[in-house]
Nucleic acid binder design. Structure first.
Lengths: 228, 228
DNA sequence: CGGAGTGTAACC
DNA sequence: GGTTACACTCCG
């Protein structure tokens, strides 16, 4: 019942019965964050690239339209009209050397965060675009997300999230008192209306408590996912 | 007078006197023919990898350019190391396909943001660690950053920033009314005490105004940097 | 010696 | 510039 965020393995519908697909996120090194995709034959043999797969399966399966990374048939591969990339790259810069404090702050505020925001925005816009084109389909948001707001459609919800992210430097004045499970995730930080650098001191216990809170939130979301 | 084809051992000029290098050819298996290289310290201790060697020798020998496999100094390795440190990788995921809304939210909250936070934390910790070791030196923060808080040292300032990022889900209660130029950067978003998804609508003009604000903030920081 | 994990040349 | 495809490392 463990759903690891770094590693997941499941059946692959685009391949014959018994074949499985695995995603592994690189955890360290220059390429940390990159997603490696592997396939396992029914006998357990591991495959790490499409040519390798083709070599093994021969003519028994036509993989010309098979997207190795995504694990599905992609008719776009025939046209070779590669449009928006479907791959995720979780990479991010490593720690730094030869960086003055000034550069550090500058780097954080003017490189990391703007890029992060931009990518989030692009990500969300891409999502709504996909949805509009029917690529994703009419998948609904699960109830616990819907309940966060009085929206008329899921598209509106996603859009408003993107919007809220974009107009970030202005106060977000939405419904209050809606502390859902997803709100307890660790990915929320820095209030623009408060000083950037605050004189907060914490103990190791504080750190551990925070980490445990994160773990609990993840567990709860996993349960929600399983129930959906 | 025995010269074995599968195994040879000799002094290694690139290491201190007394160190030896050994080559062993794999005789069978999938990797038959592959050469494994081992090193022996003057005391006879065996080393099987470069990290192992570096851990043992510590700072006494600079192995950054040492090619473990070849047993020689390789200047190309130096270039690589320097590049890796000097360059940042700003990559982040593109827009997506095949993603339900649920996965979107899950991805944002449980993949992107945790990784982002982790990297920020590592980044800042690396910075303070560097500083403590004198790698960065005693560079001072410029005045306009110092003025943000009553700190006794720059290290404290950086540390508190790292801390504030870490304990993100708790309110950051620092000095108020200190709206510095750096605060106007776009890299501040999402208040944890407000709903994640807010019913905000914006026009294209709003977007452009926001982007121009970013540009202006960047210009001002550049001026401040030039004046420092 | 195997194999998971990471590096990276070559390709598009 | 960004991926793919596979070579290589490191450690069990």
């Amino acid at each position: 019942m463990n759903i690891s965020i770094e590693k997941k393995r499941s059946d692959c519908a685009a391949l014959p019965k018994g074949w499985q697909r695995e995603e592994v996120i690189r955890k360290s090194g220059l390429s940390a964050g990159k997603v490696d995709v592997y396939y396992y034959s029914p006998t357990g043999k591991k495959f790490r690239s499409k040519p390798e797969l083709v070599r093994y399966l021969g003519d028994s399966v036509d993989l010309s339209c098979f997207d190795f990374q995504q694990g599905q048939i992609n008719t776009m591969l025939l046209c070779k009209a590669k449009k928006a990339r479907a791959q995720f790259d979780y990479r991010f810069p490593h720690s730094c050397h030869n960086f003055s404090h000034l550069c550090c702050v500058h780097y954080l505020m003017h490189v990391l965060l703007p890029i992060f925001l931009l990518k989030l925005k692009t990500f969300l816009q891409g999502l709504t675009a996909c949805d509009a084109n029917g690529v994703i389909g009419t998948t609904s948001l699960p109830k616990y997300i819907k309940s966060l707001g009085p929206y008329t459609s899921d598209a509106t919800t996603i859009q408003s999230l993107a919007t809220a992210l974009h107009v970030s430097s202005q106060p977000i004045t939405g419904q209050s008192g809606s502390k859902q499970v997803i709100m307890e995730s660790p990915g929320v930080f820095l209030n623009p209306d408060q000083p950037l650098i605050a004189a907060v001191t914490i103990t190791k216990d504080d750190l551990r408590r925070q980490e445990e809170r994160v773990k609990r939130a993840r567990l709860r979301l996993q349960e929600a996912l399983a129930a959906a």
